[in-house]
């Protein structure tokens, strides 16, 4: 049997913990080996984080025995810790005992109502139960206090989008832009929400936002398509827009030009018929849309 390189295993697990990547299969394999073959002694103080990590991965992977083992050892070491209670709650969630999990979380919050992890788990339970309304309420309540939590704003916006509440989703994206103004992805998402929520002001705004993405990230293909769609929409609507006709058509031709550049460069790098087909389709579409003016 080949020796188990536990040092590399420890490092891999540490890397995964740092990056937050969710790779349950790898973690369960490595973690199971470490725990069942007794390498935990070599970890020192890190062992408790590893237990937590392996526990969550085991829940993902439905390896209940491994999860039980980890939870037992954690409970023995930290008997009254809220963090371990949350893990117990997660196990209840995995076993579909959602109401019990909710009770557990509420109990933790009674003692310490600013425990972020508990609040987030509670929201997850509401989502799992399908009680999106309560989830949205809980999210808003949390964000009222912790306004700078970007991933939570994204979560709230995706919930709103599920219910086609475009204006509210746009609000969330504006908050995100306030948090990270140079992040072109937030501008992109905002622009797409605006375009979907179709009225004349929004399309104008969407056009500006797509231009912003292009300013921040040159030749962003999704944004180029966005510019094309917005400009064609504005030209078709032909009602008074705040931007003059010449600018709109200039932007339109600029977008077409950049798109054809990008795709010609793209197909230069790759070989094969499928890419030529793609290029052809794009060219046809671009020519079609240009012809209509």
């Amino acid at each position: 049997m080949s020796p188990f390189y536990y040092k590399t295993a420890f490092e891999t697990l540490q890397e995964l913990r740092k990056s937050g990547e969710r790779n349950p299969e790898l973690v369960v394999t490595l973690g199971g080996k470490i725990i069942y073959e007794g390498y935990t002694g070599k970890l020192g103080d890190e062992v408790w984080s590893v237990y937590e990590q392996v526990f969550i991965a085991a829940l993902d992977y439905r390896n209940d025995a491994l999860a039980e083992t980890c939870l037992e050892r954690l409970e023995k070491k930290f008997p009254k810790s809220p963090r371990v209670k949350i893990l117990t709650g997660m196990k209840l969630e995995a076993e579909d005992k959602l109401d019990e999990a909710l009770e557990l979380y509420d109990e933790i919050l009674k003692n310490d109502d600013s425990n972020i992890a508990t609040i987030k788990r509670r929201i997850a339970v509401f989502k799992a139960k399908g009680q999106d309304q309560r989830a949205i309420e809980a999210l808003t309540h949390y964000l009222d206090a912790f306004y700078n939590d970007a991933e939570t704003w994204l979560e709230l916006s995706s919930l709103y989008l599920n219910y086609h509440l475009y204006q509210q989703a746009g609000f969330c994206l504006e908050e995100l832009i306030l948090l990270q103004p140079q992040n072109h992805l937030y501008h992109l998402k905002y622009a797409e929400i605006l375009y979907t929520n179709d009225n004349i002001t929004n399309i104008n705004l969407a056009l500006k936002e797509f231009c912003r993405v292009l300013e921040l990230c040159e030749d962003h293909v999704r944004a180029l398509y966005g510019v094309k769609l917005c400009t064609s929409r504005l030209l078709n609507l032909s009602s008074s827009s705040s931007i003059d006709f010449k600018t709109i058509s200039d932007l339109n031709s600029l977008a077409s030009e950049r798109l054809s550049k990008v795709y010609s460069l793209y197909s230069k790098n790759k070989v094969g018929n499928s890419n030529n087909e793609l290029r052809q389709i794009i060219h046809d579409w671009l020519n079609e849309s240009d012809k209509s003016y």
Binding site: L207, K208, C211, R212, E215, T247, L251, L254
Partner: peptide, 13 residues
């Protein structure tokens, strides 16, 4: 910031 972004973008190219 985005007030005259169309012109900025067009003049860039």
């Amino acid at each position: 910031e985005l007030n005259d972004i169309e012109h900025r973008l067009l003049s860039r190219y």
